[in-house]
């Protein structure tokens, strides 16, 4: 492929939506079922097991709230990057995407400290039903944050050179979805006791 040729996903728009964005929506649709299924399973077990409240009281609400703040702020950076890309300002979009990725790194760092504390206190994935869901849900979400941050940095490196700016919106959509998942995980794992 020559340097100026564009992949078909970025140019074709049969449905009225550029194919790259279309694919992103399909990814998000499939993620709704993945996270939704897990959240539904957690919710029904949580409602059927009032004794899990004692386990839930060990989670650190302040750490969860801080991480919510971090993800909300990183979502702001992602949407501002989209705005910059629309204005064809690739370098600004790249800077904002890197800030978004930094938010992901801060989120994972806080999660790492939190999990270290939990494990030191003896709460591991096999400590009970609540902890199984806690580590599975937060772990799967954490993997999505990690993947999003890595892809964000790759998109940013192109955007800095004013290339493939349409990708900025796509990775932003994914990131906002990851943010929404956390918006629901926070009350389920940290507040409901």
């Amino acid at each position: 492929m020559s340097a100026t040729a564009k992949p078909i996903a970025n140019t074709r728009s049969v449905t009225g939506i550029p194919t790259a964005r279309l694919i992103t929506w399909w990814v998000i649709a499939s993620e709704i079922v993945i996270f939704g299924g897990l959240l539904a399973a957690y919710l029904m077990h949580r409602l059927g097991h009032p004794e899990w409240a004692a386990s839930a009281s060990h989670t650190n609400t302040w750490a969860g709230a801080f991480n919510t703040f971090v993800l909300l702020t990183s979502s702001l950076c992602a949407v501002l990057a989209h705005k910059a890309a629309d204005a064809l300002d690739g370098p600004r979009a790249a800077r904002l995407l890197r800030l978004t990725a930094l938010g992901g790194v801060i989120f994972l760092t806080v999660k790492g400290f939190e999990w270290t504390t939990d494990i030191r206190e003896g709460f591991v994935i096999s400590s009970g039903g609540f902890w199984s869901y806690y580590y599975t849900l937060a772990g799967l979400h954490g993997l999505h944050v990690l993947a999003g941050a890595v892809i964000m940095l790759i998109v940013a490196s192109d955007a800095a050179k004013n290339r493939e700016l349409q990708r900025v919106e796509c990775i932003g959509l994914y990131w906002h979805f990851v943010d929404i998942v956390w918006i629901f995980l926070f009350p389920l794992l940290y507040i409901a006791r």
Partner: peptide, 21 residues
């Protein structure tokens, strides 16, 4: 599309929750 996916999750919950809860 998004609403249909959410509906799938609701159906899953409604179908399984009575036995679990």
């Amino acid at each position: 599309l998004l609403v249909v996916m959410i509906a799938f999750v609701v159906i899953l919950f409604a179908g399984v929750a009575p036995d679990v809860m």
